[in-house]
Design a binder for these strands. Sequence first.
DNA 1: ACCATGGCTTGACTTAGATCAAGAGAGATC
DNA 2: GATCTCTCTTGATCTAAGTCAAGCCATGGT
Lengths: 228, 228
Amino acid sequence: MPFLKKIALFASLPEASLLTIAEVAGLQRFSNHAYLFREGEEPDFVYCFIEGGVVLVGSGADAQEAVIEFFGPGESVLLPAALLGLPYLVSARATSDGQALLIPAYKLRQLIDQDVALAAQCARVLSGHWRVLISQLKEMKTQGATERLARFLISKAEHETGAATLVLPGMKKEVATRLGIKPETLSRTLRKLKAYGVESDGDSIRIASIERLAALTRPPASQDRPNR
Amino acid sequence: MPFLKKIALFASLPEASLLTIAEVAGLQRFSNHAYLFREGEEPDFVYCFIEGGVVLVGSGADAQEAVIEFFGPGESVLLPAALLGLPYLVSARATSDGQALLIPAYKLRQLIDQDVALAAQCARVLSGHWRVLISQLKEMKTQGATERLARFLISKAEHETGAATLVLPGMKKEVATRLGIKPETLSRTLRKLKAYGVESDGDSIRIASIERLAALTRPPASQDRPNR
DNA sequence: ACCATGGCTTGACTTAGATCAAGAGAGATC
DNA sequence: GATCTCTCTTGATCTAAGTCAAGCCATGGT
């Protein structure tokens, strides 16, 4: 199982642990827009993406969807539900064709109490996930739609300076709810960002200068604020 | 150290682990409104509350504060930053006098690679925290201020049916930003909830019927929706 | 080739919540 | 006991984002 090494959860584990995992892991292909699992279900597996990715969505009341986050190759989802044996709080919908490694939840619950390396790595990966959510929550509570979109785009760019081109990790309407806004508002906000050097064509985006865009997110701070 | 048993992180650990932890843990008293640590600092300790609690706040641009969550007795904060050795993303301000157990971060980073029981328990506690944040994010993205307040109040009540009395876990303005709204809006929203049997006096709240309040959060769902 | 379907954009209008402003109480401090 | 400061409330207005509605364009099926 060469690709175990590509999954953050397993990359740093010693050979012994890898072997045990390889024994219980299964491979699954999935196609775009397919649901890998749904909110409320009992957790059967942890999903680790080798290729392609998913979006985690929570379905609020009404028919509203709340996109929590996008996940791609090397990342894992559902560790929390699997470890605690509690129903999923979110559904996962594929954002492309791909394949994932599935680790049975009950196996993981056994292994984690026996294998220090695995347990410690789980704790570290979960810590990272926690920090991602904290950042998102902070943004939701303190920034407006424009700033959030700007930071989102920057976070999807590889480098942090100069120009960048990137592809949105999902449909525009998914990106919209990830940002906590409606698709219509995303459309308009994206257009507003043209003035800051952001060109969009379908699902690919070109940022002329990341610095310029970043300047948007922290208000001038000092004396003069031209307009706004 | 009898109170190690009262901390969720340690409650289920075997004697051997408890002893190692007791050796490195220190006790600290703190008083209301004091900052235990601030955003951006290097993580020195994990904090486990024996008595009293804190609020985790992230400071967005400008002077805006974003309250992430309240933590009280038995709970721990900062595990993620401590395990990863990354700067805190939030500050912690006491919401009452109290005392906390401090575990040095570097010790924890050592222990977690040696003690399965501890590592596994960290993973489980972090899983729980992750789920709490997911729920909050979902609410932020799909519900209005009124619904969020209602669910918040319900979550602070001990039982889930009948009447309940509760004390807000912090100042009203902290509760407000925890909910992602301004203090003024909290005031008004609280008043709106009077119509649903919620009486407030200072920081104590009386809910006449939790079921009635809960009904608010899931819209009628079926055919007829009176007004709205 | 035709017609659905569904995603995206754009415009006109509405609204939930923010902002600005003023005042009431409750502790502190001198 | 008078004054400051700080939290909370209430009222009047403003605005960012939501809603409703129409149209465009790509995709996919018949």
